Amino acid sequence: MLEIRTVVMGVGDMRRAVEFWTRALGYVPREGEARDDWTVLVPAGGHGVAVALDVSATPAQEHPRVHLDLYARDTADQAAEVERLVSLGAERVDWDLYPEDPDFVVLADPEGNRFCVIDPTH
């Protein structure tokens, strides 16, 4: 049986991407430091899905086919996490595909990659 162990994201500026995602997720570079072309970030506690950053010349998609969903604990935690991520360099996305009463907030990392912060209690 297969399992997902790593999600790979294309980035244009490796240092900026590593700085954002390590602070956003509490992850650390697997090899101890970031490389210029490829860096795998892993949970500091050792368990969970890795996020690999790969230098790419392709721009981030406005409506990506694949994206990350980050789960908060509840509505208040979702709001706090969105503000924390924005303070780290994420941007709110004026998402044209929001349903009437969404349980998610769409953000973009400093590279423009879209991701969602989910309220599982919604």
Rank of each mutant, 00 (worst) to 15 (best):
V49I: 14
Y27V: 03
E33D: 10
V28Y: 08
D37P: 05
R65E: 01
W38K: 06
A57P: 08
D37R: 14
A17W: 00
V28L: 13
A34V: 09
R15C: 12
H67G: 01
T39I: 04
R30V: 10
G46H: 06
R65V: 01
P29F: 06
V18E: 02
V18I: 03
A44V: 11
E19M: 08
A24D: 03
V28W: 04
R16N: 14
P59I: 08
V55R: 08
R65H: 04
P29Y: 05
D36C: 07
V42L: 13
D54R: 14
L25C: 06
G45N: 14
T22C: 10
E31Y: 08
G26M: 10
R15Y: 00
T58D: 14
R65N: 04
A44E: 10
V55C: 11
V18M: 08
W21I: 03
R35S: 15
D37A: 15
V51P: 01
E33Q: 13
V40Q: 09
A52S: 13
D54Q: 14
P64A: 05
V66C: 01
R35H: 13
P59R: 00
G45L: 11
E19L: 09
G32E: 11
V66R: 01
V42D: 10
V42W: 01
E62P: 07
G46S: 08
W38C: 09
R35A: 13
A17K: 02
V51C: 09
V42A: 13
H63L: 12
D54E: 13
V42Q: 10
H67Y: 02
V28H: 05
